[in-house]
Amino acid sequence: MASRQTFRQLRASLFWIFCGVALLIIIIPSIDIIVSILKAAIPVIKPDIFTKTTAQGGLQNAILGTVYLGVGVLLTAGTLGVLGGLYIAEFAPARLASVLRFFSEVLSGVPSIVIGYIGYVTLVAKGGLGWHYSLLGGVLALGALILPYIVKTTEVAFSGVPRTLREGATALGMSRVQTIRKVLLPPALPGIISGLIIALAISTGETAPLLFTAGFSDLNPSASLINSPVGYLTGVTYNDLQLPGGNYQALANAAAGVTIVIILLLIFGGRLVTARSRRLVARMDL
């Protein structure tokens, strides 16, 4: 009996030791990535990298390009994604909704390099629209990548609003537009916004869809949507990593550091909004 008891305990201990090691394998790399990249980046990040372009050893054009691309993605995929999510949650009949949801999920499974390739063939190349490397090409490729995510978070945000609120609105004789604007949108908004913020974080970190659509430029992005390539932070890391010489490596690290800081800020922002929305909805549920 005693030996059986020991055997049980031994097996349990071995299992939990394995689980503990597994937890360390999850935690240590994530700390190490952030710490080692920031450690390499911080000495390089001086005020002048925000005022010089990559041609002069700064990051100004890349930061501006990343911001332009982000704004473009929010304007295109953000708007359309929120509308699409609204349709699936509030208007589409159940069967149609599940078909649309399915296609949105299929789109989210398309590899980013395939999106980049298609963007190149259809938007950039002479055989397609012939825009050359451009801001609009990059925005559309990133937008296609991020659209299903926004559709999904928006849909979840709307369908998370308690049923009692809708019934109340219907009982008051409100139209659908009124119901959506006055009753559903306020509690759904934090969920939608946090979805948009996280979507922005994802698109800030992408490289593959941009390489052959936005191209890359050492100059600040021009005002034109097409015919002019755009630099972006992840592109600096990717390009300069492959170039010999300490200056390039330093700039690659600096760009990676700035990218990580932007993304971490966005993720924390998104978390704050999500926490707020949970409290809000919890309070409304009767």
Partner: peptide, 19 residues
Amino acid sequence: LAVFLELLAGIPSVVFGLW
């Protein structure tokens, strides 16, 4: 600790490459 999972998910692939 769950935040670390979220951080890990948010790290760009080019940064994973660099690291």
